[in-house]
Design a protein around this nucleic acid. Sequence first.
DNA 1: CGCACATCCTGTGTGC
DNA 2: TGCACACAGGATGTGC
Length: 279
Amino acid sequence: MPELPEVEAVTRSLRPLVRGRRICCVHIFHPIATKPQSPTRLAKFAERRRILDASRHGKYLLLVLDRGLIEMHFRFDGQLIWFRSASELLRRANQSPDGVHVDVALELDKGVLGFADQRHFGRVHHWESFEACPSLRALGLDALSREFTPSFLHAHLSASRRPLKEFLLDQSKIAGIGNIYSAEALWHARLDPRRPANSLSRTDSAKLHKAIVSVLRRALECCLDPAPDFRDPQWWFQGLEKILRAYQREGLPCRRCGRAIRRIEQGGRSTYCCLHCQK
DNA sequence: CGCACATCCTGTGTGC
DNA sequence: TGCACACAGGATGTGC
């Protein structure tokens, strides 16, 4: 559920399900999901706690508890699954051959929230406070926060010599942008992903800022309709490909100039762009 | 400090 | 069909 828009949509759908609920029991099916914390730590700190709210920072989903918080990261493929009861969870979870993969489940006083990631990159951690979580502390401004302004962006771009694409993926500057929406924002701003961040004029930075915000807003709208359905383990966001202009369009015509979209490699990952109209 | 790179995992798609 | 290999929406630790 990777980038900001997807996690935001999930947070909004999840909020009414968990707000005010008490965690009765923590089920750990695959302890790798809490690494490097021990599974007993999560159970010990989360059981009997009340969930005050669900929130998000960058790509992190947070369950704010009456004491401490649970931090979830979905990495590539992590997802949430909702069960009506503990018996439904135990009946369906990890039962071969066609059971639902579940790594960690929070049994609530009403319903069960499951965290699943077959690839086991995703993580669920508990922290005493926001400040106690190193990865949250390291995050820069959320890309959809009010404080993320054109001048904020320009100041940080000016301080970096990295290629634009790699700058945008650095969560310590701006939080929430990943491989898809960095490619999309750069396409909309007509900027070459390989260009050094500090080569942008104030006008270029303003164009990039506008592109980032509009790309993320547009994607969020798409992610909210239809809203995520945690009851269906197969569910995934629909229709996002319709709004993509560069990502995964290698060889297809650029929607502006008609030339082929190219796939290049940056920092070991794919970047899609139009080398003709992105300068 | 900034940066390049390997590493953590498993599923799916592609070409032979 | 079987198999090998490339690739995947991400973050972190290492060594330079």
